[in-house]
């Protein structure tokens, strides 16, 4: 017994040292010391980013959360704890609910055309409109414009009396359309600008997805006698399903976060009918100096976005699985 155990004990270090000295296995298993050196140097490489990340993301998020429980003002006053006052005020704030409603309507009105239209345009280019490069350029070019330029262009086209649309309508003897001055139309105008301006990105994603579909699928389908419509619905659309899921998810998030084009085009008017949640936060916090209340609204909206994202992820995963 004892000789057996001693020989085992004697063999084990030999085997171990033999293994560690053999070059091939050295690269697979590392000693604890080597691992700790590698881990430490990794830490130093990550540190600059981690520091910036903590400083400009984690810390603001936490301090914003704290602020939402105070009546912090932009002028430095009111930093003492105020409980859930801001949150209960937010739930009863009619202007916030209006802004939330506007944001949801904007999201519904933009996501559908930005997905459907960009697919149709990408498909038309893909199946070979003559002069493909020209179409590709003209569908994508608006996306390259800064938001201020895109808005300035449309602002003049929407202009009453001598804007492009109203000028033509007047000359043809029709009544003018108050694109930006009527509550019911202003959101529609914002949606048109947004679709025109941001369509190009989705278009590009769709175009590259379409180009990645292997040709042999189409060839095989043609041999089996599938017509163009059958090929579209049974090959093209299923093959780009993953891209569609990704585009819808990105688009919903982008639309919920709308701010710039509304701020520049209508400043939330007329009568608050186009003010989005983000603009309301801006108005409350920076124009109204109530940073505490603005933080509370931000956190409510943040929670809402997380819920929407989780629901979306669940639904989309089920669909694409």
């Amino acid at each position: 017994m004892s000789s057996l155990t001693s020989s085992n004990e004697a063999q084990a270090p030999v085997a171990a040292s033999g293994a560690s000295s053999a070059p091939p296995s050295r690269s697979r298993t590392k000693s604890a010391r080597e691992r700790s050196i590698q881990g430490r140097s990794g830490f130093w490489f990550v540190l600059p980013f981690a520091a910036a990340f903590a400083m400009f993301l984690i810390w603001p998020i936490l301090s914003g959360l704290w602020m939402s429980f105070t009546n912090q003002s932009l002028t430095g006053k009111g930093s003492e704890f105020a409980g859930f006052g801001n949150y209960s005020e937010a739930l009863g704030d009619a202007a916030l609910w209006q802004a939330l409603g506007n944001t949801v309507i904007f999201t519904l009105l933009t996501v559908v055309p930005l997905v459907v239209l960009s697919f149709i345009l990408a498909y038309l280019v893909y199946i070979g409109l003559p002069g493909q490069w020209l179409w590709r350029l003209s569908f994508f070019a608006p996306y390259l414009l800064p938001v201020s330029v895109a808005v300035a262009i449309w602002q003049w086209m929407f202009q009453p009396d001598f804007g492009l649309f109203n000028g033509l309508l007047l000359r043809a003897g029709f009544a003018q359309i108050p694109f930006l001055s009527e509550a019911s139309l202003a959101m529609f105008s914002v949606v048109v600008v947004t679709v025109w301006w941001t369509l190009g990105f989705n278009f590009l994603l769709y175009l590259s997805a379409l180009n990645n579909i292997p040709d042999h699928l189409y060839e095989a389908a043609s041999i089996d006698g599938a017509g163009p419509w059958r090929r579209l619905f049974s090959i093209t659309i299923p093959m780009i399903n993953r891209t569609t899921v990704m585009i819808i998810m990105l688009q919903v998030l982008a639309s919920l976060k709308v701010f710039e084009q509304i701020f520049l085009l209508t400043n939330g008017g007329p009568n608050g009918s186009t003010r989005s949640v983000l603009q309301y936060i801006y108005d409350v916090g920076f124009t109204g100096y109530r940073l505490g209340y603005a933080s509370a609204i931000s956190y409510l909206f943040f929670a809402l976005i997380i819920i929407i994202s989780i629901v979306q992820l669940r639904v989309m995963n089920r669909k694409s699985a």
Binding site: A183, G269, N271, G272, D283, T287
Partner: peptide
């Protein structure tokens, strides 16, 4: 440049145009 003037103007603008 206040939210007050903005709100007053939006309401009055709606009244002026008959909304």
């Amino acid at each position: 440049g206040t939210e007050f003037q903005n709100q007053m103007s939006q309401v009055l603008s709606g009244a002026f145009t008959g909304d």
